[in-house]
Nucleic acid binder design. Structure first.
Length: 948
RNA sequence: GCCGGAGUGGUGGAAUGGUAUACACGCUCGACUUAAGAUCGAGUGCCGCAAGGCGUGUGGGUUCGAGUCCCACCUCCGGCACCA
């Protein structure tokens, strides 16, 4: 018997395919297209491990499937090779970065080519190629011309080890994401891109994208939009000095009892002459400056110093309030100053508690039940009602009365309605007596009013109850008999605080429990109804926000967590920023005709650490005539960050050789947007935001025709090492795909990676399990010997074939490769069971399997006498009618338990099936002596007999 | 803390509200082999001799029927985190 020699077969077909140009992109614009893209790799010195190809294999399978289904495919590959990792690798290995990158790319490419991927290598691009980065620079120039790129000297995050400024996105928990060093704040001249101007569009357009929810959510988090108001507080004493604050809760203005400035806030120094404890303030500022962000985050206890001698005026109450400096207020968010409302903000609350500052409540909480039971029904009006909630403490134990409702699954404190004209406290006393019988009460505390919105199940209406909340203590257990109708409503339980925590159903009652534990005060940060806010009392927060903003002469304002993109690096290995500085003309863009500004060859490319890039030392490169006045100019010596080239590369693949434009408009219109983009989810907040930003900009200047670049996105799940940890050289758990390909073949490797589990979920590498896919391929190989043109095309095989086509097609389309593989395995197992396999069926198997195992299927295909490549074969269609079995087995259940089976034809009438089921031998013993209440027939599936 | 996702055999994992554990790994037994490997065949959730019972993180609920829907809780993974 001939052997399945994967080495011979794979290298043979890889050569033939390359020679033929099989994977060259077709440009026939009359045909539908599919642009399938992998996030291009960063060619590191480590080479690929088995985790990397997972995504490439998936996109390969998907694009082959689309190609065979009649689409023009664009499935390219390239290299993202500028940036810190490549440069650091080069420095470490004492090589020029260019040489290191070339070497790494060659290694990556060699590894990829062994996998039989259908990339069109004629479109290969490399971000470090001047012909490519010419256009990266061109985009920068357009940004500059539109005022979206500007120079700034603000302090930025500086990595002392990488010796460069970083963007906020490049930090991970206050450390440099690349090297793990603590970053410092350092004022450096830098280029910044106004990504914030696109924040709203980046946020809004997310909704129309077919992306994994968690990636969209990450982007929403990252953009961090919040709507609020800008309010001005005057510094007391008629100095005409103001403190501006940004707040999302202007409705709580009457509760602002002090203010806080960030230590870096300029007003702190401006106020110095008035501050009586300047030494103390100065010392605090100094300490705060030294603290890294990490330290700030770790020590959560709040610190701060009051600015003695100055006070601010609350514009609503006109009262003078103290001003503090504290590092819990961040300089770079909002205005770097806040109005503190300790009653309704947890941070302010903690601070006020620590320093004994006044706490003024201005919001009565409103709780809207959002979970069952009692979830508010949308669209129904609310029935308003005044009521009481009474917390009743035991006379000797630490227990409280709780009601377990009998008609609904509720647990509450004691509640009741206030009749018109009655007082709240009297009602509470009356209710306690009626519902519990207890006689001797002592009022301990009045917690004010809590509002609750919920669906009243017994009354079947939405209820909005405004409850006065009281805490009573029983003096003794003297009590009288309760009326029987009260007993029917609920059971009375004595519960401890811990028990109450899980017992209470409504959110409003849970909140009261917190009041009980926290000495009657806690920060309630939700929306509610205003109190202690003259003329606004009784108004809902939502409305009060804008009314109070107006009242205090503030203005509506939107703010974002997203910072503008710090775009310059003080490093060598990046695209030079195409700007010339001229003493006379200022900042002048390099004329487009002079692009690219080529990165000069240098002998020393190590970072300087001075805030200037190594390029600054090459005077012959730096010195240049000013394009405007012809006078003496100097080139910008900062370079672009790693993320520049990858922010538009997908456009270049469409038209990689074009030297007139970054992409031809017609071609762009045909291939855009990307139909399937696939890669690591770690790019959620950098690459995927930056690229969307640039794309929207290019759309605005008319360079591209779609608002969004990536319509559908799939995030590839990681492959962990066999020890369950991330693969890394250091841990010694790296598996090299070359070894797996050598031992089992690329086809087996491809199938194994797809079969491991759901594509988007992470999984653990398990060398033991690879044998499964290998055995599967060997079965297919051996099956050829059973192929016969004369074989009977029996109905069983036909149904199996059509079912398989249907399921495999749907699964590949939905990126469910694991179940697609298992379907093919079922198919092969089925064919193994027959005497002879019809040739037509075997051909279908080869076509369906081809995207997964291109080499082996190609070999078998040619052995069968075919001379064309399988890649050019059409994907088979299925006939829905032929996916249905002629005879089906229906399960008979008695009371939901399987007790027998019935073979019927699918056309059988319902009553006939039921009759047969009831008469079935193995069923009788379960129904005898019982009354058959009901028989349910689920067509073609089961019969359920309900018998009691 | 907030948001997002997930908990199913010894293992990886399947299941439009309708036979839970497809497919695969592993394991057991048998065949072929001097032997090992490969291959082929049979078996493999748990308890029980059996009849049968119990089983999808835990506890409730809806339903003729729940891994799937609802509620509460627990655990794990990911994002954000003093963002006003």
């Amino acid at each position: 018997m001939r052997q399945y020699d994967h080495k011979k077969i794979e290298s043979k077909w890889q050569k033939r395919w390359a020679k033929d140009g099989l994977y060259k992109t077709e440009e026939d614009q009359a045909k539908p297209k599919a642009y399938v893209l992998d996030m291009f790799p960063y060619p590191s010195g480590e080479g690929l491990h088995v985790g990397h190809p997972k995504g490439y294999i998936a996109s390969d399978i998907y694009s082959r499937f689309k190609k065979m289904s009649g689409y023009n495919i664009l499935h390219p590959m390239g290299w993202d090779a500028f940036g810190l990792p490549a440069e650091n690798y080069a420095i470490k290995n004492k090589m020029h970065p260019k040489v290191a990158v070339e070497k790494n790319i060659a290694r990556f490419k060699e590894q990829l080519e062994k996998l039989g991927l259908n990339y069109d290598w004629e479109r290969e691009i490399n971000t470090t190629d001047p012909a490519y980065y010419k256009w990266t620079q061109w985009i920068f120039l357009q940004l500059f011309k539109k005022g979206l790129a500007y120079e700034s000297n603000e302090p930025i995050n500086w990595c002392p080890s990488c010796k460069t400024g970083l963007a906020f996105e490049d930090l991970e928990g206050g450390k440099c994401e690349r090297c793990g060093s603590d970053v410092e704040q350092r004022p450096i001249r830098q280029w910044v891109l106004k990504i914030r101007e696109y924040a709203d569009r980046l946020l809004e357009d997310l909704s129309e994208l077919e992306w994994p929810e968690h990636i969209k959510e990450s982007q929403r988090n990252w953009i961090g939009r919040s709507e609020g108001a800008l309010l001005r507080f005057e510094v007391a004493g008629g100095s005409e000095q103001y403190i501006e604050v940004f707040t999302t809760r202007p409705d709580t203005l009457f509760g602002a009892t002090y203010m806080v400035l960030a230590p870096e806030h300029s007003l702190v120094s401006d106020l110095q002459p008035k501050i009586s404890n300047w030494n103390e303030v100065q010392k605090y500022k100094e300490e705060a400056r030294k603290k890294t962000d990490l330290e700030r985050m770790e020590e959560r206890t709040k610190t701060g110093v009051e600015l003695k001698g100055v006070r601010a005026v609350n514009p609503a109450t006109k009262e003078e309030i103290p001003i503090w400096v504290a590092d819990y207020v961040l300089a770079h968010y909002g205005t770097g100053a806040i109005m503190a409302v300790p009653a309704h903000d947890e941070r302010d609350f903690a601070f006020a508690k620590k320093f004994g500052l006044p706490i003024q409540e201005v919001i009565e909480p409103v709780f809207t039940q959002s979970t069952e039971p009692g979830k508010v029904r949308d669209g129904l009006p609310f029935n308003h009602r005044d009521g009481i909630i009474a917390v009743v403490k035991h006379w000797s134990e630490d227990k409280y009365i709780a009601l377990k409702w009998k008609k609904v699954a509720w647990g509450t404190f004691l509640t009741g309605s206030i009749d018109a004209g009655d007082g709240a406290e009297d009602t509470a006393r009356k209710e306690i007596r009626e519902e519990t019988g207890y006689l001797n009460l002592k009022l301990l505390k009045n917690f004010g009013i809590v509002h609750g919105k919920f669906y009243h199940l017994p009354k079947q209406m939405n209820s909005f109850v405004h409850s006065s909340v009281f805490l009573f203590e029983l003096e003794d257990d003297a009590h009288e008999e309760i009326a029987p109708e009260e007993k029917e409503k609920h059971d009375i339980l004595w519960l401890t605080v811990d028990e109450l925590r899980t017992f209470l159903t409504p959110d409003s009652h849970k909140h009261i429990l917190e009041l009980l534990c926290g000495e009657g005060v806690c920060a309630y940060a939700g929306d509610g109804i205003l109190k202690n806010s003259p003329t606004f009392d009784g108004m809902p927060s939502e409305e009060a926000k804008w009314r109070i903003t107006e009242f205090a002469h503030g203005e509506k304002r939107v703010d974002y967590k997203l910072r503008d993109w710090v775009f310059s690096r003080q490093r060598y290995w990046g695209e030079p920023i195409p700007i010339i500085h001229c003493a006379k003309c200022g900042t002048v863009p390099v004329p487009e005709k002079d692009l690219p500004v080529v990165l000069p060859e240098v002998t020393s490319y190590e970072p300087t650490g001075t805030g200037e890039s190594p390029l600054a030392a090459i005077s012959e490169w730096v010195r240049v005539a000013c394009p405007k006045c012809g006078g003496e100019g100097k080139r910008e010596t900062n370079t672009m960050p790693q993320w520049a080239g990858s922010s538009w590369y997908y456009l270049r693949f469409i038209d990689p050789q074009n030297d007139k434009a970054l992409v031809d408009k017609k071609k762009e219109a045909y291939w855009s947007p990307i139909d399937l983009y696939e890669g690591g989810v770690e790019h959620a907040t950098r690459h995927l935001i930056y690229a969307r930003f640039w794309h929207k900009f290019l759309y605005d200047i008319g360079a591209v025709s779609y608002k969004e670049p990536f319509g559908r996105l799939k995030g590839v799940g990681l492959i962990y090492g066999e020890d369950g940890r991330k693969m890394s050289k250091r841990l010694g758990n790296v598996v090299n795909p070359d070894d797996v390909v050598a031992a089992y073949g690329a086809d087996t490797f491809r199938i194994y990676e797809m079969f491991m589990g759901p594509f988007e979920e992470s999984s653990m590498w398990n060398t033991k399990s690879i044998i499964g896919p290998r055995r599967f391929l060997e079965k297919v190989w051996r099956l050829e010997e059973k192929v016969s043109e004369k074989a009977l095309h029996d109905q069983g095989i036909e149904i199996l074939t059509h079912k398989t086509i249907k399921k495999v097609s749907a699964d590949i389309g939905a990126f469910r490769f694991n179940t697609a593989v298992s379907t093919l395995m079922v198919f092969v197992n089925g064919l193994e069971g027959v005497e002879a396999v019809p040739l037509a069926t075997y051909k279908i198997l080869l076509v369906l399997l081809h995207p997964f195992a291109p080499h082996m299927t190609e070999e078998l295909w040619h052995e069968l006498g075919n001379n064309n490549f399988l890649y050019r074969e059409a994907w088979p269609n299925f006939d829905e009618a032929k996916t249905k079995e002629g005879k089906i087995t229906v399960v008979i259940q008695v009371n939901g338990k399987v007790r027998g089976e019935l073979d019927i034809s699918p056309e059988e009438e319902e009553y006939a099936v039921k009759e047969q089921a009831l008469a079935h031998e193995s069923i009788k013993k379960w129904t005898s002596g019982k009354e058959v209440k009901k028989v349910i027939y689920v067509h073609g599936k089961l019969v359920n007999i309900v018998a009691v």
